[in-house]
Simulated scan of single mutants.
Amino acid sequence: MTRVVLSIGSNLGDRLARLQSVVDGLGAAVRAVSPVYETAAWGGVEQGPFLNAVVIADDPALDARAWLRRGQELERAADRVREVHWGPRTLDVDIVTCHDGSAEVTSDDEELTLPHPLAHQRAFVLAPWLAVDPSATLTVAGETTPVAALLDAIDADERAGVRQVDLALAL
């Protein structure tokens, strides 16, 4: 069985509906959903704020590449267009980490890098993940580190820019 942590975000159109489409699209595979956060765009491209959340899911029929394809299908269903790197988007579905049973799945190729190589630098990933799984860990440069410690290491201004909002995703 594979268990994934997915970071989802949207800053175009009905942002909450776009996030909900992921939860709905994954159906019975969803095990937990974080609160929803609003964050300033990351990556230096001028654009509106994102809604972000983390979804934890598992499915015995999916390996890491199948999770990647599933995330891309959900993005296509939300009319995702990849025009500008880190630009505005209807939906972004990133695999942060994947486990097959107790073993962490690693991958380092141009199609899929696991664990996500920048997740440890992104408060908009770590804060929702920590909210839904306080004991979460992430492997960075071969070392497994508590997500709480990774979040604490991020600049205070960036952490402050990740604000929980009064919106929720339905399971």
Rank of each mutant, 00 (worst) to 15 (best):
A28H: 14
A28R: 14
A29L: 13
A29Y: 09
V30A: 04
V30R: 04
V30Y: 04
V30M: 04
V30P: 04
R31F: 01
R31W: 01
R31M: 07
R31Y: 01
R31S: 10
R31H: 05
R31N: 07
R31I: 01
A32R: 14
A32K: 07
A32W: 04
V33E: 07
V33Y: 10
V33R: 05
V33W: 08
V33C: 14
S34H: 02
S34E: 01
P35G: 11
P35A: 15
P35R: 03
P35F: 03
P35D: 06
P35W: 00
V36E: 09
V36R: 11
V36M: 05
V36F: 07
V36Q: 08
Y37M: 02
Y37E: 04
Y37W: 10
Y37D: 05
Y37P: 04
Y37C: 02
E38Q: 12
E38T: 09
T39Y: 02
T39V: 01
A40Y: 09
A40I: 14
A40C: 13
A40Q: 15
A40H: 14
A41P: 15
A41C: 14
A41F: 15
W42M: 12
W42Y: 10
W42G: 03
W42D: 06
G43K: 09
G43Q: 12
G43T: 13
G43I: 13
G44E: 11
G44P: 10
V45L: 00
V45P: 00
V45I: 15
V45R: 03
V45C: 00
V45F: 00
V45G: 00
E46W: 11
E46H: 10
E46D: 11
Q47S: 10
Q47F: 05
G48W: 00
G48T: 00
G48E: 02
P49L: 01
P49R: 07
P49T: 09
P49F: 03
F50L: 08
F50E: 07
F50I: 05
L51R: 04
L51M: 13
L51N: 10
L51C: 14
N52P: 13
N52T: 15
N52D: 10
N52L: 14
A53L: 11
A53T: 14
V54F: 01
V54D: 00
V54A: 03
V54L: 02
V54K: 04
V55R: 12
V55T: 11
V55I: 15
I56H: 13
I56W: 05
I56K: 11
I56Q: 15
A57K: 05
A57Q: 01
D58L: 04
D58R: 07
D58E: 15
D58K: 01
D59E: 13
D59Y: 06
D59V: 05
D59F: 04
